[in-house]
Design a binder for these strands. Structure first.
Lengths: 349, 349
DNA sequence: CAAAATTACAAAATCGATTTTGTAGCCATT
DNA sequence: AATGGCTACAAAATCGATTTTGTAATTTTG
């Protein structure tokens, strides 16, 4: 029910009611009213009739305690901060939407700040958020600099700062399902894309791939590894490096992209170099963003349960704020979604 | 500079310094220190030497006034609320990123709440945001229910509530450039997609199309109008309706989609019905989200300057908060971006 | 029946700022 | 020499809550 709807035609929209005026109406002291409304221990000593009077009046006048006065006294703000590199892009949006749902359900709000990999900005926002009394932080794909003074949960950050809990994908499982898929399709010459150095997943992901490749007896040609550098959430991310690769070599039959966004850019680059996907080159993405299933060809991809990761991060943070202890890592499982962008390797030109 | 970096090795991380303790160190009263730091008018009466002492001490101890105490006194929060239907999707992300940049530049933060077209939720968040002292609201593609008590700017909302300023696209220009493009490519049988009823742009956009079509002598076959219903930011949005249309009729040569997301779903639907894009059916999107240029085929689309619209909304809101008056509408101009998803109409089967 | 405990509240302190009012000392006027 | 105006601050009020302490009146206990 909206606040304004509360004011009847004859009574003009009341000014906000304070505890004092409410107490005045009731001919009680503010202290008593506060004690009753908050059901403080000492409320036990107050007769039920009085309590009812107070509650009724509070409802009638739509009394809501001033958030700032309350926060000043109690040092509770029901607010957290979220640090993210960038708002756009399917990845962050999905994680955010998972976080938001879990937060708003329990009456928390959040401040969002995107730092664009600018370390100074990151430090500044970190401080500004603390100034505003956030009770904890969630860092999405963000490398934290300093040991935090607040509860912190990282999503896809292998940050090993003490006290930080990370929600991470089981990278080996991810690597294994992607590589197994390609090997079953008889691919042996596979190109790999390494994420940008600032993306906290890049290293873990690639290490897992290297390890699993070894286990599967697949050798990785260093010349088929390309490195992403750009700082963007547009598919442009994957384009230049893949185009350059395709110009240099055409003997690979598959490409494992860093994420869906770069996979889309990669496919465009391959086509622009005259290579068909998947007939000439199979492409695997990562994330399973919403548009992955609708791209043309639809993307085979390693799905991360992004929304769920966001929700886990939020719930974990809330519990940490309550003082519950958590391990340094909470792992979630990926799932390979096979679609059109991969097929059986063709004998090559 | 990070706060923690401030504490030298020998001095353990200080507890937060308050005005009182700072004043204690300086052997001055809190009042005097506050007056100096805020350069209140009465600071003129205080000697420069004292003022310097105060500023130096404030810096040395990294004194920062408590945000909640300050807000309680001054009724300024440097926070706004943003109401959005959904976090995901290219549209909202781009607008948000424009807003964020403009806000953080001037030290404002924002609370984000997504209401998913749930009127109750919208009202509830509206109240919760006001409780938290937001100084104004930005509503993105959101139909406002009640006359707001705060400065409000709407992005793509034709809300005609008094006091609300809307940042809107010049719909006629948009319609005109899209239709002209199609007509130049010799399309005459064009299918149209109407946005969901809850999307505030839907009606304006379609009305503009109808009007411009009339002016251009193009007749719209009511049987070729499809209506979106789904509440999603995935391309799935456009799929079912278009698939159904293509099953019923195949004599149209072009489709004007409601946005890029639904255009992507539409293309997939057309292909699944055996129609090629653009050879059999040209498709025009709307928005020019980041992946539009990379879709296959890349999307011809009517570009909305979404980031800019967000920035305009934010700056306008900040000025409204200062008391500057604004007209009910601020129009921005679209631009047709021709890419691969449209081509000359082919004589039909 | 006096002392102790409980009932039912009110008064005052507190959170950490800002802002208004007050005041002691000094200098300059009429 | 009394009045007025500066100078340079301090004291106190205020924002709107919560929490601790206090206190009459009543009830229970020893």
């Amino acid at each position: 029910m909206s606040r304004n709807a509360e004011s009847t035609p004859e009574s003009p929209p009341r000014k906000r009611m304070t505890l004092k005026t409410l107490a005045g109406h009731l001919r009680l002291s503010p202290a008593t009213v506060s004690i009753i409304l908050n059901q403080a221990p000492s409320a036990k000593a107050i007769p039920a009739a009085t309590q009812k009077r107070v509650f009724d009046a509070a409802r009638k006048f739509d009394y809501r305690p001033d958030y700032f006065a309350k926060s000043l006294r109690e040092k509770r703000t029901f607010t957290i901060g979220i640090l993210v590199q960038d708002i756009g892009g399917g990845y962050g949006s999905l994680v955010l939407s998972g976080i938001e749902k879990a937060l708003l359900e329990v009456g928390y709000f959040y401040f969002l700040a995107s730092h664009h990999h600018n370390k100074e900005l990151l430090g500044k926002y970190n401080d500004l958020l603390i100034d505003r009394g956030v009770e904890g932080l969630i860092a999405i794909d963000t490398e934290l600099l300093i040991e935090p003074v607040l509860p912190v949960v990282a999503v896809s950050g292998h940050t090993s700062l003490p006290g930080v809990t990370s929600v991470v994908l089981d990278h080996e499982h991810a690597a294994s399902s992607a590589l197994t898929h390609l090997i079953e399709l008889r691919h042996r010459k596979i190109a790999f894309m390494k994420g940008q150095p600032f993306s906290s997943d890049s290293e873990d992901r690639f290490n897992a791939i290297a390890k699993v490749a070894g286990q599967l007896g697949l050798e990785i040609d260093p010349d088929l590894i390309i490195q992403l550098e750009m700082d963007t959430s547009s598919p442009e991310l994957g384009y230049p490096a893949v185009r350059e690769l395709a110009r240099r070599r055409t003997d690979f039959t598959a490409l494992l992209a860093f994420n869906d966004i770069s996979a889309i850019g990669a496919i465009r680059a391959l086509r622009d170099e005259g290579l068909r996907v998947p007939e000439d080159v199979s492409v695997i993405g990562f994330d399973d963003i919403e548009s992955a299933a609708f791209y043309n060809p639809s993307l085979t991809t390693v799905r991360q349960p992004l929304r769920q990761m966001g929700a886990i991060a939020a719930r974990t943070l809330l519990e940490k704020i309550q003082g519950v202890a958590f391990p340094a890592e909470i792992a979630v499982q990926p799932e390979l979604i096979a679609r059109e962008s991969t097929c059986v390797a063709s004998p090559r030109r």
